[in-house]
Design a protein around this nucleic acid. Structure first.
Lengths: 198, 198
DNA sequence: TAATAAAGACCGACCAGTCGGTATAAGTTA
DNA sequence: TAACTTATACCGACTGGTCGGTCTTTATTA
């Protein structure tokens, strides 16, 4: 029998295990027994910590945001220009990608589920809403300071986001992960260059 | 009993019906009886035309490419500049999006399945390989003619593709589909402008 | 052209197996 | 011992796939 552990420790373990399986097999094809095997726990233990499979999945979205997403506050640094902030962000994404490409596959699963389930959609929409807000503010700051030309902040923010999402393509279709980083750098430079005032 | 129809007609019907259900519920959550209901056919009829559920799904990828993807040959038109071709392509995507946003959700399902199944991955990889080749050639032509600056054709093609994919975001999270078209136009103009020689 | 034969399309009851979830018991710890 | 955590036996709903057989259309032949 597995050692008893405090709730917060155990749930972290379950989250990490569930992430692996969900990313690999998708929500529906992942059975609770898959998660049991991955954690080494029993069915009863899992259901003790989570009401049901969907509850577990919804928790996973929070877990992803907390674990894998860059800390927002570090981008409030006023000493950096808007271009520099985007570059910094891009570098962090590259690093995440090199360490663990599966992080981005999780997003794919989130999007796919968002298309099927209202609750998931709301939660994922909020997740990306947060990101877009961050980008938008950085862009606005760049415009106000005279660094960027007169852009549409909302659409520009979205362009950056979708450009970054493009890296998922490499995780799926390209074995050599180096190229993903090259893509990201190239695209980011291209966009920022287009943002800058002449 | 349903009227007997020639194979090619019937399979088209099944494909259209299956597309709707798969996009809405995803592969695993779609049962064969869902497809039965959507077509009005019996289980035996479906299995008469397709070996199994996965065979049906794989056929759907071909069907999508044939039905919803712009005809490649029209882009061989040498009288158009590379910029004009991309603009034309972008307009067609916009039109598709206005008519039926679910077309793009199908891609999401393809990607998601590509992550889980080797056969699907190979097929989807080829699909996007075709698209990327088309883009790459147009870009190369633009460079050779002096219209575009010295770009990396492969990465540039990928940038355009991922930018277009970004429209999926609107299908998922935004009710007002008009905005998707605005996004696409904005991004496409931005990219092309960046491609052009000064 | 009429009768017959072959092919193709379609039907639905049925099977073996899987899954999410529940109820309850057993182990652990403070 | 009381509270918490983990284990196990079990259930009902549902799924993909099979199969014997029927109905329709097309081809052949007399």
């Amino acid at each position: 029998m597995a050692e008893n552990k405090p709730k917060n420790i155990r749930t972290q373990e379950i989250m990490d295990a569930a992430m692996q399986v969900f990313v690999k097999k998708g929500f529906t094809d992942t059975s609770m027994s898959d998660i049991m095997n991955q954690t080494g726990l029993s069915k009863g233990a899992i259901y003790h910590h989570y009401q049901n499979k969907k509850d577990l999945f919804l928790s996973l979205i929070d877990h992803w945001q907390n674990t894998h997403f860059p800390d927002f506050h570090q981008y409030d640094d006023k000493s950096l220009s808007s271009s520099q902030i985007f570059q910094k962000f891009s570098n962090e994404v590259s690093e995440k990608f090199r360490e663990n490409p599966a992080v981005f596959l999780a997003e794919l699963e989130f999007w796919s589920m968002a298309n099927r389930d209202e609750e998931v959609r709301i939660k994922v929409k909020k997740l990306y809403g947060d990101i877009l807000n961050l980008f938008e503010n950085i862009i606005k700051r760049g415009i106000d300071s005279g660094e960027f030309k007169q852009l549409d902040p909302k659409v520009s923010a979205l362009s950056i986001m979708t450009a970054i999402q493009g890296i998922i393509w490499f995780t799926l279709f390209e074995s050599n992960s180096f190229k993903g980083e090259k893509y990201l750098k190239y695209v980011m430079d291209f966009i920022i260059h287009g943002f800058l005032k002449k």
